[in-house]
C-alpha cells in the first residue's frame, strides 16, 4: 500500500510518499514510527497525535487502528488543522 505525507508530516517524514506493507491503520502507523523518528513523536503506538489525521484514498478520514487496508489503498497523513 501507498502512503502520502502532506505539510508537517511530510517535513517530519522527510519524504513525500512511500510504499509500506501493512494491513491495518494501526500496523501502518507502527511501521512508520519505527522507520521515522521525527514522525514517531506524533504517533502513540498505533494512533496519530490529535494534531494529525489520516485519510483513506482521500475519500474518508480514519482513526480506528483496526481499519483494514488493502494493497491498492493510499493513506494520506496531514495536519488536522487543514484550513487557516
Amino acid at each position: 500500500m501507498h502512503v502520502e505525507f502532506l505539510g508537517v508530516p511530510r517535513e517530519r517524514a522527510g519524504v513525500a510518499e512511500l510504499d509500506v506493507q501493512a494491513d491495518t491503520l494501526g500496523r501502518l502507523l507502527g511501521t512508520l514510527a519505527a522507520q521515522m523518528p521525527a514522525l514517531a513523536e506524533l504517533i502513540a503506538v498505533d494512533r496519530l497525535h490529535p494534531s494529525l489525521v489520516a485519510s483513506l484514498n482521500g475519500d474518508r478520514f480514519i482513526s480506528d487502528p483496526g481499519t483494514p487496508l488493502g494493497d491498492d489503498d493510499c493513506v494520506l497523513i496531514l495536519s488536522a488543522d487543514a484550513g487557516g
Partner: peptide
C-alpha cells in the same frame, strides 16, 4: 504540535 503547521510552513501549506 498543535501549532507546528503554522510555525513551520504557515497557512500556505494548505495549498498542496
Amino acid at each position: 504540535p498543535a501549532t507546528e503547521k503554522y510555525r513551520d510552513l504557515g497557512t500556505a501549506t494548505n495549498l498542496l
